[in-house]
């Protein structure tokens, strides 16, 4: 069976997960890999969980990643990292932004936000303050570019960032892991 590297990106609608995955996909195609990426968006424009999946290798068949098949879970929000854990392979790596975004059940007081889950786990979890870094650099919206920098470092894949994106945010992401 063809060996592929599998990444699951997860975040909250509006955080720019899809854009990050796209930029990384382009870099992987340039590096000569076969690449497949799935970006299935559910109901609303904003506010729901957004997952994108990226697989690369010599040859990729199915574009989606099953439970227990992700080499990396890249989360743009801490509770979303937790939700995506069943997809993680044994020995896989989680990279997550430290950021917490409260969902409606939490805001309405019907559910509790899992602040402390990172402390409980023995998984290989790398936490970076991507949102905070981007905010300090002047644009919180660029936190996805910080994440992209961090992922490119983790994977050892060179990403040529198109000029319209914030190169400082990208570099800061590379330094954060």
């Amino acid at each position: 069976m063809a060996k592929t590297t599998n990444l699951l990106f997860t975040g909250v609608g509006g955080q720019g997960t899809i854009l990050t995955t796209k930029l990384l996909s382009n870099a992987l195609v340039d590096a000569g890999y076969d690449v497949k990426m799935s970006e299935i968006h559910g109901m609303a424009q904003r506010g729901g969980t957004v997952n994108t999946q990226l697989k690369y290798g010599d040859k990729v068949y199915a574009p989606n990643i099953g439970e227990g098949e992700a080499d990396y879970v890249i989360a743009f929000e801490k509770a979303e990292a937790l939700r995506a854990l069943p997809y993680l392979k044994d020995g896989g790596v989680v990279l997550t932004d430290e950021r917490e975004i409260y969902s409606m059940p939490v805001l309405l007081g019907q559910a509790e936000y899992p602040h402390g889950w990172l402390k409980e786990t023995e998984y290989n979890v790398k936490v970076i303050p991507a949102y905070e870094i981007a905010e300090k650099l002047g644009s919180a919206r660029d936190s996805n570019i910080v994440m992209l920098g961090a992922v490119s470092k983790l994977l050892g894949i060179a990403v040529t960032l198109p000029p319209k994106f914030n190169a400082k945010a990208f570099d800061a992401g590379r330094e954060a892991v």
Partner: peptide
């Protein structure tokens, strides 16, 4: 299942639901 070592992650805490909402 051909690949070995693949297993489902186990953790006790669960993430609160994040249903889509009116913006």
């Amino acid at each position: 299942i051909v690949e070995s070592g693949v297993r489902k992650a186990e953790i006790t805490t669960s993430a609160p639901g994040r249903p889509p909402v009116l913006c």
